[in-house]
Simulated scan of single mutants.
Amino acid sequence: MNGLVVKTPAFENEGLIPKEYTGYGDDISPELHLTGIDEHAKSIIIIMDDMGHPVPAYNHWVIWNIPVMSIIPAHIPHGKTVETLSGAVQGRGYGRHRYKGPKPPFNWSHRYQFNVFTIDCMLDLPSASKKRDLLKAMNGHVLQQAELTGHYR
Rank of each mutant, 00 (worst) to 15 (best):
P67W: 08
F117T: 05
V6H: 07
F11A: 07
I63V: 11
L16V: 13
T22R: 10
E147G: 13
H33G: 01
K7R: 03
S70E: 14
A10Y: 01
M138I: 08
L123H: 09
A137P: 08
G79M: 11
A57C: 12
Y112F: 15
K7T: 05
F106W: 14
R98F: 10
V62D: 03
K100A: 14
P56E: 08
A128H: 00
N59R: 03
F117W: 05
A88L: 09
R132V: 07
T149L: 02
K100G: 11
G93H: 04
I76N: 04
S86A: 14
G52P: 05
M69D: 09
L123D: 05
T35L: 14
Q144H: 11
E39M: 14
T81F: 10
M138S: 06
S109R: 11
G23W: 03
M48Q: 00
I47P: 04
A88T: 11
D133C: 08
N139P: 14
K136M: 13
I119P: 01
R153C: 11
K19I: 11
G150D: 13
M51W: 15
D120S: 03
G23S: 01
I72T: 02
P9E: 09
D27T: 12
T81C: 10
K103I: 06
N59T: 07
P77F: 09
S109K: 13
A41D: 00
M51G: 12
V6D: 13
V89H: 10
L16G: 05
V6P: 11
Q144M: 12
P104I: 07
G25C: 08
C121G: 03
I119L: 01
Q90N: 13
H75V: 11
K100P: 06
L123A: 12
R98P: 06
D27L: 14
L125I: 15
P9N: 13
K136C: 05
K103A: 08
N2K: 07
I71Y: 06
R111Q: 03
R96T: 11
T35H: 14
A128D: 02
S43F: 03
L123W: 10
V68H: 01
V82W: 06
T118M: 01
P9Q: 11
N13S: 05
T22N: 07
A137K: 13
V5W: 02
N59Y: 01
L148W: 09
Q113W: 00
G91N: 02
N65K: 00
L135I: 15
I66M: 05
S127M: 05
L143W: 05
I66K: 03
K103D: 05
P105W: 06
F11Q: 02
H53L: 13
H78A: 08
P104H: 09
L134P: 08
N139A: 15
I37A: 03
I72D: 01
P77N: 10
Q145A: 02
G101Q: 01
D49Y: 02
A41T: 01
G25I: 11
Q113P: 00
K80G: 05
F106I: 09
E20F: 05
A41G: 00
Y152E: 02
H141A: 12
S70I: 04
T8R: 04
I119Y: 01
V82K: 04
I28Y: 04
L34S: 09
P105H: 04
W108S: 11
V142T: 15
I44K: 02
N139L: 14
P9S: 10
Q144D: 04
G25S: 04
T8I: 03
H97F: 02
N107G: 03
